[in-house]
Amino acid sequence: MTELSLNEVESLAAKVGRGAGFSWGLAEEIGRGARRLAQGGFPWADALLALAEKAEAMQAPSPAQAEQWRVHRSETDSTTTLCPVRTAALLIDDPAILQAALMHLRNVGLPIWIVGVLAAPSAAGGFEVAWPTASAWVDRQGVMPKAPGGAWLTPAADVTISPGAAPSRETRPPRRTIVDDVVLTALGSFAARVNVPASESSRAMGAGGGSVDEE
């Protein structure tokens, strides 16, 4: 097991997100989301690995879906699994979708990422994000489980987002997180996809200091 700082969590998660094929901007959201999940005591590392492994199998909301959500129409059943990051990104970009209404999202992959990415910067209170086996609060202060023991790594579920205020926190959220080394290694393999092996040409160009101190 390895203890990580939250900055390491965010940095690693952003790289994993990019390595899994998300755009740079979405990778930034994944980094912030993983940090919030870690602070909330959620299994962020397992969730991140699952996201990286399943990213290509999930779909962004269609423009038609987005329009349906805006006018609060109920969705028809869908066999397409929604990407939670792309979905949450739309919801934070256009907070009007979530204002003063209960929202049902069908077949969301890894719904824990709705919790992680969905910040509530413009909401007066916050949101409760729930699926049949888990429920969490999301607000300006971060994210927290509504009840312990939720099935946070549910592969896919229908999700409900409703306005609601989280209870006040009495203790400071944790600023460290412990990660299983096997999971950390697997995450590292995704993160490594953004790196470039060093070449002699880069060294020849003088990427750093001289080879041996001469002063």
Binding site: A192, V194, N195, V196, P197, A198, S199, S202
Partner: peptide, 26 residues
Amino acid sequence: WYVSAEKLEPRLGERLNEPGAEREQP
């Protein structure tokens, strides 16, 4: 601009002469 796999540090590559431009940093 890229991140070196060797030391995980930022580096600057020559696009026409070095591999890795597909992993360019933003």
